[in-house]
Amino acid sequence: MQHQPSAPAAQDLPAAALSTGAVARHLGVSPTTLRSWERRYGIGPDLREDGRHRRWTPADVARLELMCRLTARGVPPAEAARAARATATADSRAASGAADRRAGAAPGGPRSLPLGDVRPECRGLARAAVRLDAPAVEDLLDATLGELGPVTAWEEVIMPTLHAVGRKWASAGERYVEVEHLLSWHVSSALRRIRPAPEAARSPVPPVLLACAPGEQHSLPIEALAAALGERGLPVRMFGAALPADALHDAVRRTGPRAVVLWAQSRATADRALARSVAGIEWGLRGARGHSAVLIAGPGWGGGAPERTERLFGLRSGVEVIAGLAAGASPATGAGPAGPAACGS
């Protein structure tokens, strides 16, 4: 264990000094892991507030980032910690770049994901996923969803990470399939752990029915939609992936939903005739028949919406459209695009 310098006064700490929790989210590790690294390998923060609170400076974080890159390449943690400490200089960025060049790798390491300009939580989640660190992925997802809510977490953290994994997989053959599968499974699990607002169970409003088109297996975007609607207190019936056409028709007649959201990731599964037939279903007692608003979502639908349906664009705007329908607004059938991606696709 390295000797820790005297604790500076709280007002003397650099403005950029971060808490252990914030650094853990940035790196994609658990706070317990950071404390273990400090205890075992002496790679702790140089500063502490009054008392025992750890505060991590940019130089501290640079050392940890280097250690994470080295361990992701298979370097034992003790050796990675020694290398990270050895490269610490006043210019932490230069030190980290030099270590990468000595390792014969591009900055970020050969296994890093092409994320671009994203939130720190996104980088932390990506690092944990590439390491196949399932406990860290789970903790980071729960913390991000709890702090940001399902809509912002999906748009600014989860979706960019999923897209980066997909791009890496496309450029590296089959090597990153395991990363995508692990991340997708944990995203789905984390979304389902979000408890709907209590009013969702008591709501007199007809439910919203969510389903993937027949043959469509990619259900994460409508799982995010289900979580976001539940948070708003709107009742949802989720049918998940690849719901057969006959089952979809029966579900609409039995539940009398205010709206039906039909997701299609690919053009091969976007069944426009099915969407039109669902829009034509009437349900309820004779003399008091009703019908559901049909909302299509996902990149598979391509151009304009089928007759008597409306296209959703983006998770955030999709939630607002559905909330408006629940409040009694009429769907703007045939409305044009409101954003670049359909329901967070």
Rank of each mutant, 00 (worst) to 15 (best):
V151K: 02
A88E: 06
T144P: 01
V151F: 03
A88T: 02
R127T: 06
A126C: 12
S92H: 03
L132G: 07
G149P: 11
S96Y: 11
T89A: 15
L145I: 07
G109A: 03
G74C: 03
G104W: 06
R123P: 02
S96E: 10
R101C: 05
R85N: 08
A81K: 02
A106E: 14
G108W: 13
R101A: 10
V118E: 01
P135F: 13
A80Q: 02
A106K: 12
D133K: 06
R127D: 02
E79T: 12
D142W: 04
S92M: 12
A95S: 09
V151R: 01
A98P: 05
L141N: 00
S112W: 00
R101Y: 08
G116E: 05
T87A: 12
T144I: 08
R82P: 05
V130S: 01
G104A: 08
P120V: 07
P77M: 06
A126Y: 14
L125N: 04
L140Q: 06
R93A: 08
R131C: 10
G124H: 03
A84D: 15
R73W: 08
D133A: 03
A88F: 03
P107C: 11
R85Q: 15
G97W: 15
A105P: 02
A86S: 07
S92A: 15
R131E: 04
A95P: 05
A126L: 12
A99S: 08
P150G: 06
A103V: 00
A99Q: 02
L140P: 01
L113Q: 00
D100C: 09
P110Q: 13
G104L: 06
C122Q: 06
L125P: 00
A94S: 11
V151D: 02
P114Y: 02
V118G: 04
R111H: 07
R123I: 12
G124A: 03
R127E: 00
A136T: 00
E147M: 13
G124P: 07
A83I: 07
A80I: 01
A98D: 11
P135G: 12
T144F: 08
R93H: 15
T144E: 03
L125Q: 10
A88M: 08
G146K: 00
G97Q: 14
L113D: 01
E147H: 15
G97H: 06
G124M: 06
S96D: 08
P110D: 15
L132K: 14
L125H: 00
P150V: 03
D139E: 12
A86N: 15
L115A: 14
A134L: 04
R82D: 11
A94T: 06
P77V: 04
D139R: 05
S96H: 07
G97L: 14
A86R: 13
L141H: 00
A90W: 12
L115W: 10
